[in-house]
């Protein structure tokens, strides 16, 4: 369980929140604290006060994969292959093992054709896929995805959804503005002004949001 107690960081204030294993999606208006919550759970930021624990361990001691919506911020290497291999190389994994892992994850995400390309020459959506490959290559316990889908087409999102579900991560914590994707979660959290307004199953949370722009259009249309 990911447990959050008396968390305070900038405008984010969460007194108590438990996130079970599975896929958890955070939704909410711009500036509501979604990315901040994800950064705290990933250990990228430390709380001003309070605590985030992943199975009783602080996030920085948890194997975590992180994908930023703006992948340029995280790119370290000029070539796609090197970017995907970076985490394993930093651990001094044997080169043949690293190569096998990189090619396997590239095949899963259908980006094998990009491995020899320069990072600067690929599209924004392709950069997100490379960032996802770089995050998944270490088989993280916690996978954190910050609006990874906003630069991906529908077919690609469907493919990635399957990869995320089969990646073996005990926890997937993500935020999205695509409510149809949010509806596929085990736990849905709606943040507003730095506070958890609703948390529960997609049915429970969306029923509280009916009549708002956050209610999935396909649910509204009942087709």
């Amino acid at each position: 369980m990911i447990t959050i107690h008396d968390l305070r960081y900038r405008s984010l204030a969460i007194n108590s929140l438990s996130i079970p294993p599975g896929i958890t999606t955070v939704i909410g208006p711009n500036g509501s604290g979604k990315t901040t919550l994800l950064r705290l759970c990933a250990g990228i930021a430390l709380p001003d006060s309070g605590q985030v624990l992943v199975d009783g361990v602080v996030p920085r001691e948890t194997e975590t994969g992180w994908v930023n919506e703006f992948p340029d911020k995280n790119i370290l290497f000029p070539r796609v292959y090197d970017e995907c291999a970076s985490a394993l190389r930093f651990r001094h994994n044997p080169c043949p093992d690293t190569d096998t892992s990189v090619r396997r994850i590239a095949e899963t995400l259908q980006i094998s054709h990009l491995l020899t390309r320069e990072m600067r020459a690929i599209s924004g959506g392709e950069k997100v896929l490379v960032a996802l490959a770089a995050a998944l290559v270490t088989s993280p316990r916690l996978l954190v995805l910050d609006e990874y889908d906003s630069h991906l087409d529908a077919a690609c999102c469907d493919r990635i959804e399957l990869s995320i579900r089969n990646c073996g991560a005990r926890y997937v914590l993500r935020c999205t503005q695509q409510m149809e994707i949010a509806a596929l979660s085990d736990l849905l959290i709606y943040l507003e002004q730095g506070k958890v307004r609703y948390a529960g199953t997609p049915d429970e949370v969306f029923s509280s949001l009916s009549g708002t722009a956050f209610y999935p259009l396909s649910w509204r249309c009942r087709v």
Binding site: P29, N30, E69, Q177, M179, T212, F214
Partner: peptide, 13 residues
């Protein structure tokens, strides 16, 4: 180019 990315549902509308 991708004007809707990063925007919440209210802002997209």
């Amino acid at each position: 180019d991708e004007p809707f990315s990063s925007l919440d549902c209210i802002e997209k509308e």
